[in-house]
Design a protein around this nucleic acid. Structure first.
Lengths: 193, 193
DNA sequence: TAATAAGCGGAGCGGTGCTCCGTATGTCAA
DNA sequence: TTGACATACGGAGCACCGCTCCGCTTATTA
């Protein structure tokens, strides 16, 4: 994640903080596609001010989520050390899915960063993806997960589930179940419960 | 699907046909979120004309896809009669996924119709969903598919896969594999190959 | 306290979805 | 063939969007 550049003037720092605070609640209310103008308005700040602090929507998302993603990457290592591979993987994926469901349509933004290295989200997100891929490989080496899946596919599937739950209240209520179905399906046949 | 109201004036009919033709190619090029203004322009027709013929984007999509969805619903019955439940289900789901991938982001539109009975797509889509749910139940009764899945969840999962493949070329190349992973995961443990 | 770098804010551009209504034209009866 | 009229056309206009640009304000520092 990008280092937060401490502003040189106190009002700039104050505005930045306000924007982040407002952006968080607006994104929670309306999803990751919310109007940036609206965020600026509610932060009682000019639109230019918003764009100066956060040149792109991704930059704003990164400032809000970057440290969570970094934490997820770190957690992957912890889980790998403390739990059997299969358990580590599923626990981690659940945590990731919960994070990806923070704002509606965030999954779309995350998927798009895969192909766009210029996005600030790309860095924090790809580091996290790497961590997940490592957990996957461990579980596959242990024979717990079918070998014909790779990190990209896993990331895509979990994001797909996170995304779909944002498009229907009825489906949202079953997010955990849908995730279970997918994860269960990835289990190696020999290890299937 | 809504009955196609034969226009009373020949120019109206001509414009309607032009719009549908152009809309099909534009949606294929740019996805289901393409600019309606752009469609009107390329059809060399006023924007008002487009909106008179198709009051909403969903109405336009329905006119383009409705009969395909009706055909899918019909195909479900044929498959149920001619094939074992499991095979009927997977064959049908593949056909549906192919259709759902026709235009990028179409899956989002389809998911949204679930909660919006006023959408023209709702009718043709829910009929089709019913047909799929019936195939699912057959397969479950035969013990081929795990019993703790319902039609809504199945629809959501397949749409999720269709959607995600539209958000990354790398993922798009593996659409069939992702679908296999999900369908395989839904197999009843006892019947797993 | 005055100079100045730093930051602010919103007008403006080109785009979107969608509505509304004055105008044009296809159709059909005379 | 020629009107008269229902039908359909087309785009101006409204409110919104993302994003840029630049004249003005203000916090900071000497």
């Amino acid at each position: 994640m990008a280092t937060p550049p401490r502003a040189r003037r106190s009002d700039a720092q104050r505005n930045r903080d306000r924007l982040l605070e407002v952006a968080r609640t607006v994104f929670e209310e309306q999803g990751a596609q919310a109007s940036l103008r609206d965020i600026a308005r509610r932060a009682e700040v000019g639109l230019g001010t918003l764009y100066r602090h956060f040149p792109t929507r991704d930059a704003l998302l990164d400032s809000l989520l970057g440290r969570h993603f970094d934490a997820l990457a770190a957690q992957a290592a912890d889980l790998a050390a403390a739990h059997p591979p299969r358990e580590a993987l599923t626990t981690w994926l659940r945590a990731f899915a919960a994070q990806a469901a923070a704002y509606q349509d965030l999954s779309a933004a995350l998927m798009d960063t895969i192909n766009d290295e210029t996005s600030p989200l790309h860095a924090s997100c790809s580091a996290m993806r790497g961590a997940g891929a490592r957990l996957l490989r461990d579980a596959q080496d242990a024979g717990d997960v079918r070998p014909d899946v790779d990190g990209l596919e896993l990331f895509a599937l979990v994001n797909a589930v996170a995304w779909i739950t944002g498009h229907s209240p009825a489906v949202a209520a079953r997010r955990d179940h849908l995730l279970d179905l997918v994860l269960d399906g990835l289990a190696a046949p020999s290890s299937r419960r």
